[in-house]
Simulated scan of single mutants.
Amino acid sequence: MGIRRRFGYTKIMNTPDSNSSPAKPDEGDTPSRTATAYHEAGHAVMAVSLGRQIHKVTIAPGKQAFGGTRLGHCEIKKGRTKGANDQLEDDVLILLAGMVAEARFTGQYCHRGADRDLKDVANLLCTRAASSRQHVTLRRRMLAKTEHILSDDAHVAAMTIIADELLEKTTISGRAVRHHFHQAQQQHS
């Protein structure tokens, strides 16, 4: 099965200030590595909650096809387990979820770290917004919706578990992501 879209970091991000500390610090993990784990966990949790199938999630550094580096990525398979009401909206929510999840850890958005995701969001929203004002309004609504969805206790728990496992193993399978997501859903229902 082919990979549909990759969501993840494209540039080296700003590290959080010394006053912020990770939710669960692990020995040997830097704040930027932990932030990357939360970023990728956010993409994965949003994707699974919207019915997408995950191939794998990693925080291993790598190169992009057209140059540049990325700190991690979430590979999503083609297809979905449930029908989407609006595929474009789902794609935007998944793209924004990395930055939103990371901000739960660092306390602020890292626009530089989510640069590729934000460019993809802008490209997608241009197909819906006729003017720049509509574009800004739509982006603001999508960001608020992403924050709302990821503020659910079960989603927060799933992101934390997935981020912890990424810090431990660097790469995890889509099956492990689904397992952690469903386990968090059961614990918080």
Rank of each mutant, 00 (worst) to 15 (best):
A44C: 05
T69Q: 15
G42E: 02
R139P: 02
G51N: 08
D26A: 13
D152I: 04
C126Q: 11
L96Q: 02
H180L: 07
D29C: 11
H111M: 10
D90F: 08
I149D: 02
G98R: 04
D152G: 05
S173N: 05
I161P: 00
A84S: 12
A176W: 03
R140M: 07
D120M: 13
R140G: 01
T15C: 08
P25K: 11
D91T: 06
A103Y: 12
Q64H: 11
K145C: 03
D26N: 09
P31K: 06
L143M: 15
D115Y: 15
D29E: 14
I172C: 03
S151R: 12
G8R: 04
I12V: 13
T36P: 05
P22W: 07
I59M: 01
S189K: 14
D164N: 15
G68V: 05
D91P: 06
R112M: 13
V136M: 12
K78Q: 13
F105H: 09
V121Q: 04
A60H: 13
T170H: 11
I162C: 04
H39W: 07
R112N: 14
E40Q: 13
G2D: 15
A176D: 09
T81F: 11
G42D: 03
K82E: 09
I54P: 00
I94A: 03
M13W: 03
Q108S: 14
K169S: 10
V92S: 02
G107V: 06
A101K: 05
I161A: 11
L138P: 03
S173L: 08
G113T: 01
R139V: 04
L95M: 07
Y9R: 09
R141N: 12
A41S: 11
A101S: 15
A130L: 12
T10M: 07
A157W: 02
K169M: 09
N85A: 14
H55E: 09
A23M: 12
L88E: 12
G98C: 05
M1T: 11
I76D: 00
D90N: 14
A129G: 04
A44K: 01
Q108I: 09
K145P: 02
V48G: 00
I162P: 00
S32H: 06
K63Y: 15
T10S: 12
H55P: 00
N123A: 10
H179Y: 11
H179C: 06
L95I: 01
A84H: 15
Q187K: 15
T30D: 10
T160V: 06
H148L: 09
N85Q: 12
Q108R: 15
E89W: 08
G174M: 02
R140T: 08
K145Q: 13
E168L: 13
I54H: 00
D164P: 04
S21G: 11
N123M: 10
T81N: 11
A35H: 02
R133A: 07
D26R: 15
